[in-house]
Design a protein around this nucleic acid. Structure first.
Length: 133
DNA sequence: GCCAACGTTGGC
DNA sequence: GCCAACGTTGGC
């Protein structure tokens, strides 16, 4: 089981949109590193949904329901299908993450521009714990 | 709205 | 193959 973090601007596609849609094709990735991560995703993996620009917080967890296949609108790129699992009781902001020493090495902190990034199990667990407050 | 950081492009 | 120029992302 692997963990990921996927970014979206809520004005473009938010957590609420995902809940409303029940599932979605995660498209629009146009970065090689992000594409590699998309391709590494396995069915059943978990992914945080992070709102960039507005909110700057992790709002919920989705799971990968279909492994990568070519983007219908751009063959050279890859997409996965995801479905919402649950909303975090308390969303975790970028400031919360930066304030936690255990999360100092998260890709979100180190390489904030990568739109699809891996999350370590320890980081995932830590954020889950933080969201319980 | 600004700008730093990063990725990509293209000239040499 | 290097690197300057450019475009984009995203935090502030």
């Amino acid at each position: 089981m692997n963990y990921w973090l996927m970014k979206s601007e809520p004005g473009t596609y938010s957590w609420d949109d995902l809940v409303k849609d029940k599932k979605t094709i995660w498209d629009g990735v146009r970065n090689f590193q992000a594409r590699n991560n998309i391709k590494a995703m396995k069915k059943g993996d978990m992914a945080f949904i992070y709102h960039s620009n507005e909110g700057k917080d992790i709002v919920g967890i989705a799971k990968i329901t279909k492994e990568h296949f070519p983007d219908p609108s751009a063959e050279d790129w890859a997409v996965v299908e995801i479905a919402p699992v649950k909303k975090l009781k308390k969303s975790i902001t970028l400031a919360d993450i930066k304030a936690n020493k255990k999360l100092a090495n998260m890709v979100l902190v180190k390489n904030s521009r990568l739109s699809v990034q891996p999350v370590k199990e320890s980081e995932f667990d830590c954020i889950m714990k933080m969201s319980q407050d």
